[in-house]
């Protein structure tokens, strides 16, 4: 007997699992840098997030007697992104709790992969940020300067203990908000306090390059988002009359969650528009909101909130940006 189905009869080798695998690979440089900067404790948080997200998905699908989807890797990616957004100093129940919020509440209760209206990892982070602000604060300082004399010794110490460094350091983004300047080179490489995966701009860019090369993401959303943020920040600073320096603007790009958010979260397939112009509007809106929150907000950061607010408007953006079909371009519909 031969098989019967309608055309097409061939499929590309790509699957959801291979796409998720590429995203996970792209996340590795930023996460490894997080472990390097914050020590073994960061690795523990990353593993907890990854395992708990995967486990939550597995158990939910199993208990609800739904087709098992854990092998598509999307829960693992959510776990890695959640870890990226947590400081290494959080108590260990935070990653567990965050994973359950992300996978159970934000993803599965909305219908699972493809149906969630917000990025699960980011929505969970925002939930934790609002509920436990003290625990989600700046967290551990980095092990030391990039090339400081004590760097190696501090690194060795961090890699042999899981204890939390009680001293907290101000994030460079907070320093910028307070009117200080930051060491851009340190910021670019990621040797400063912050969340595990967000500090190293260079590591995030390596991941971005990999995803661009593999065709996983297009530069449209991250490119416009980054440019719009800088432009709106400059505009708002000009409006408020506060000093606007190159250090301040470049600092906005390389510190805080902007780079990680633009590369890994704003580009989330499920929660960003699929139409080309929808993507442009979405990225511009994220830039506007991020700049608003960063310049006028009480907190120095604003990327997470900007993205999840943007997420909720995606269906509207798509509805008004359906492309003209071939042959209907340039003529009235």
């Amino acid at each position: 007997m031969v098989n019967i189905s309608t055309s097409p009869h061939i499929r590309s080798g790509l699957s959801t699992a291979t796409v998720m695998q590429d995203v996970a690979i792209a996340l590795m440089p930023a996460l490894l840098m997080g472990v390097f900067v914050f020590g073994l404790r960061a690795l523990l948080v990353i593993l907890l997030c990854a395992v708990c997200c995967t486990l939550t998905e597995y158990l939910y699908r199993r208990l609800m007697k739904l087709p098992q989807t854990v092998s598509d890797g999307s829960a693992l990616v959510t776990g890695l992104i959640l870890a990226m957004n947590l400081p290494a100093s959080v108590p260990l129940w935070i990653p567990v709790f965050g994973a359950v919020i992300a996978i159970l509440v934000v993803k599965q209760l909305f219908g699972g992969l493809g149906q969630n209206i917000m990025n699960p990892a980011l929505a969970a982070r925002c939930f934790l940020l609002i509920s436990f602000p003290a625990l989600m604060g700046a967290g551990m300082p980095a092990v030391g300067n990039l090339l400081g004399p004590d760097a190696l010794a501090a690194f060795g110490q961090r890699m042999t203990t899981l204890a939390v460094d009680a001293t907290t350091g101000a994030t460079p983004l907070q320093m910028l908000k307070d009117g200080q300047s930051v060491d851009l080179l340190q910021a670019f490489f990621g040797f400063h306090s912050g969340c595990i995966g967000e500090t190293s701009t260079v590591a995030i860019l390596v991941g971005a390059a990999y995803m661009l090369l593999r065709g996983v993401i297009s530069p449209r959303i991250p490119g416009i988002y980054l440019a719009a943020t800088v432009a709106f920040v400059a505009l708002f600073r000009a409006v408020t009359g506060e000093p606007l320096t190159g250090n301040y603007l470049l600092g906005q790009l390389c510190t805080g969650g902007l780079m990680a958010g633009a590369v890994f979260m704003a580009t989330d397939y499920v929660t960003s528009p699929i139409t080309p112009w929808g993507q442009v509007i979405y990225a511009l809106l994220l830039g506007l909101l991020t700049a608003l929150f960063r310049v006028f907000g009480s907190s120095a950061e604003g990327v997470s909130y900007a993205i999840i607010i943007g997420n909720t408007l995606v269906p509207l953006m798509e509805k008004v940006t359906i492309p003209r079909a071939f042959g209907k371009r340039g003529v009235a519909r």
Binding site: R11, L113, G114, Y269, V270, I274, P323, G327
Partner: peptide, 23 residues
């Protein structure tokens, strides 16, 4: 190849939009 793969949930990756010659 059609029989090898079961359809799964759309992840809204947008590859179809970039492949469609009819936009």
């Amino acid at each position: 190849e059609v029989a090898r793969w079961e359809p799964t949930a759309c992840i809204r990756c947008g590859r179809c939009l970039r492949a469609c010659p009819e936009f």
